[in-house]
């Protein structure tokens, strides 16, 4: 069943829409949740919550890309759950490492003056991604959106592991410079 037909089921309030979503995007969403949480039970719950969020969002929404739409919901849910679980005790894993790496992108507060809203930050990030080459952008998103391992990214794009690391290092530097130039304070 193609995306359009699944979305139609949502619009018809047909619960088969959830089964079809599970069938078509279950593994995809679970992988996103797993990369962030590294916990099977939590990941399953996030994926199940994803279908419920989608059920509530469609209609009125009609996403152009259902997979990305569902994946984004899963990511947000997983991220919230991860933050909740790590509120008192910081865990270990790739999520922790990924955030550590992104710290490099944060300009020093003393060098910037203005504060930006989350929406503005999102707009800036999209603008920044537009400045990157396709390779840089894809590698960056696989790492910081999908929270994938370096080795998985290398395998996906047939790249050397060191190439992936080098690319990410450079992109983080570019993001830092970009945010500084734009006067972004995080």
């Amino acid at each position: 069943m193609i995306d359009e037909e699944i979305i139609d089921l949502y619009w018809k309030r047909d619960e088969q829409a959830i089964n079809e979503s599970q069938s078509r995007y279950g593994k995809y969403c679970f992988q996103i949740a797993w990369n962030i949480l590294h916990d099977r039970e939590d990941s399953d719950e996030c994926v199940n919550d994803t279908w419920m969020r989608a059920w509530n969002a469609i209609p009125p929404g009609r996403p152009d890309r259902l997979g990305i739409f569902l994946g984004t919901i899963t990511r947000n849910l997983s991220f919230d759950r991860w933050k909740h679980k790590n509120a008192m005790k910081r865990g270990r894993g790739i999520m922790e490492v990924a955030i550590d790496e992104l710290i490099e992108c944060i300009p020093d507060r003393c060098s910037t003056e203005a504060a930006v809203e989350t929406a503005e930050l999102e707009r800036m990030i999209n603008a920044f991604l537009n400045t990157l080459s396709e390779k840089e952008r894809n590698v960056f998103l696989r790492r910081y959106w999908y929270v994938e391992e370096y080795s998985d990214i290398a395998k996906r794009y047939h790249l050397n592991l060191n190439t992936v690391k080098t690319t990410l290092f450079r992109v983080r530097g570019k993001l830092r410079n970009y945010l500084e130039e734009e006067g972004i304070v995080l």
Partner: peptide
């Protein structure tokens, strides 16, 4: 905390970018 905000902000990335990054067999980079 700022890195976490950045991570959250990435959720609003243009879906077209994400879709492009899904192309597993894209060997143009290598």
């Amino acid at each position: 905390d700022s890195a976490l905000r950045l991570m959250e902000a990435l959720s609003a990335v243009d879906p077209a970018f994400l879709e492009a990054s899904e192309n597993r067999s894209d060997a143009r980079f290598n």
